[in-house]
């Protein structure tokens, strides 16, 4: 035995304590979702999932993610490119700002959009004149989701790009590559796995966001209800089986995300370093 190893019994005790904590705190809730969903058999489960309001919520959730995720890929790439490849005053400030949506309550994030675009908000009168609805409509949900999920791509890319430095790009430039050629052929391949990793997390949050979306959506069934909001409604109506059935879809998505994320970590650990969440 090495001098710096714990005795066997202590090692097993620590492992058991850690696993016990994780089991109660993480595994049990996950199991509860699926158990709750199948409590009344598979037929009830299927009925709850294909019910029209659930399908509409699913469609809306997918639409929102399909808009918010690509937008944040662009924003995230632009922000991390600017931060890592150029020097400018206030750079440190900008880096800490990027994380801000993570530490602001999602409810507050939603509130912001109500204040800006709500009927009594700053842009309210103008929007009403032009008959544009943002709050309590799909655009508001998209905006709030973009805000809340903005950090995920950028915060994966910035440490990665900082660590890789600028010399690859400089080499490409000295060999005659244009800015776009440099980005497409040198930068992007270097960060692709980190980018995918960020997109994965961004997508999971975009589909699952509750607080911010709840505030801006208005909860109109079949129209502005996303899957998480639909779960809340079902749950508050004491329709537990249906609530868990819909929840199991999102839990399934979470599991897929975790598996994909782990595969990325094992296979391309070095290429997504910088790490974090």
């Amino acid at each position: 035995m090495k001098t710096t190893a714990e005795p066997g019994w202590l090692r097993w005790l620590l492992i058991a304590a850690a696993l016990g904590f994780l089991g109660i705190n993480l595994a049990l809730p996950l199991a509860q979702v699926f158990a709750g969903a199948l409590a009344k058999g598979i037929a009830v489960y299927r009925a709850a999932v294909v019910e029209p309001d659930a399908v509409a919520a699913m469609r809306l959730t997918l639409t929102v993610a399909a808009i918010a995720v690509p937008l944040n890929i662009v924003f995230g790439l632009a922000a991390s490119w600017a931060i890592t490849k150029f020097d400018f005053p206030g750079k440190a400030m900008l880096i800490s700002l990027i994380d801000l949506p993570l530490s602001v309550s999602p409810v507050v994030s939603g509130l912001i959009y109500v204040l800006l675009f709500g009927l009594q908000g700053w842009a309210g009168p103008w929007l009403r004149e032009h008959d544009i609805r943002i709050v309590f409509a799909v655009p508001g949900i998209v905006l709030a989701t973009v805000f809340v999920t903005f950090p995920f791509v950028a915060r994966e890319l910035i440490p990665l790009m900082l660590e890789q430095g600028r010399s690859d790009e400089e080499a490409a430039r000295s060999l005659g590559a244009t800015g776009w050629q440099t980005f497409r052929r040198v930068t992007l391949p270097n960060i692709r796995w980190g980018l995918l990793y960020g997109v994965l997390l961004c997508n999971a949050r975009a589909m699952g966001e509750f607080g911010a979306v709840s505030v801006v959506s208005g909860h109109i069934r079949g129209l502005t209800n996303t899957l998480p909001l639909h779960i809340e409604i079902l749950y508050n109506e004491y329709n537990y089986v249906a609530a868990f059935a819909v929840a199991s879809l999102l839990a399934g998505l979470a599991l897929v995300t975790l598996v994909a994320k782990s595969v990325l970590e094992w296979r391309f650990g070095d290429a997504i370093a910088g790490g974090g969440h």
Binding site: S167, E170, A171, S174, P189
Partner: peptide, 27 residues
């Protein structure tokens, strides 16, 4: 830099690690 047509060899080589040697040279 791209118009100066100088060859620059970087301190840690800055080889594109996702490209094969031939693709690096051909870049």
């Amino acid at each position: 830099a791209r118009d100066r047509k100088v060859g620059f060899v970087f301190q840690n080589y800055a080889l594109f690690r996702h490209m094969r040697v031939a693709d690096n040279i051909a870049f």
